Computed example of a mutant assay.
Amino acid sequence: MVKAIARAFRWRDMLESGEYATIREIASAEKINETYVGRVLRLTLLAPAVVESIVDGRQPVRLQLDGLMRQFPVGWPAQSKALGLIS
């Protein structure tokens, strides 16, 4: 999960800096599927507390990368609750 989050922020930085103009360009450069790049980029929408928990290894055991790659709430409080970080 940490690697995917790091990748997401790196790709976002590449888009914001103009190094790449589109998700398609990133996918081509990385030789991976365009939809995967899009799903990974969504990880940049995770609440800072969620990212911190994952980086520190304090996420719930049931929270795996495949779960993060699915749709999650954009609102940070709802997100933390949906991902099992608060009850």
Rank of each mutant, 00 (worst) to 15 (best):
A29T: 01
G18Q: 10
G75D: 14
P73D: 05
I32Q: 04
A8S: 00
R12P: 01
I23T: 06
V37D: 03
V61D: 06
E19Y: 12
A29E: 09
R42G: 02
R42D: 05
L65N: 02
V40W: 05
E52L: 08
A49Y: 11
A21R: 15
L63W: 08
P77H: 14
E34G: 01
R24M: 06
I5F: 09
D13S: 11
R10H: 14
L43V: 00
I23Y: 08
I23K: 04
R62A: 07
M69H: 14
G57H: 12
A29C: 10
I23V: 06
R24D: 01
L68C: 11
T22H: 07
G75M: 11
S53K: 14
V61C: 04
E19M: 10
E16G: 00
A21D: 09
Y36D: 04
R24C: 01
A27D: 05
R7A: 08
L46Q: 10
L45W: 15
N33C: 07
A29N: 03
L43T: 02
L15K: 01
L68D: 02
V61S: 08
S17V: 00
E25P: 00
P73G: 15
D56H: 14
Y20E: 02
P73N: 11
A21E: 03
R42W: 09
T44R: 09
W76V: 01
E52M: 05
L65A: 03
R70M: 13
Y20G: 04
S28P: 01
P48F: 10
D56F: 08
E30G: 04
D56I: 03
G57W: 07
V40T: 13
G67A: 05
Y36H: 08
I32N: 01
A49K: 05
I5T: 09
E25S: 02
A8M: 00
R12K: 15
M14N: 06
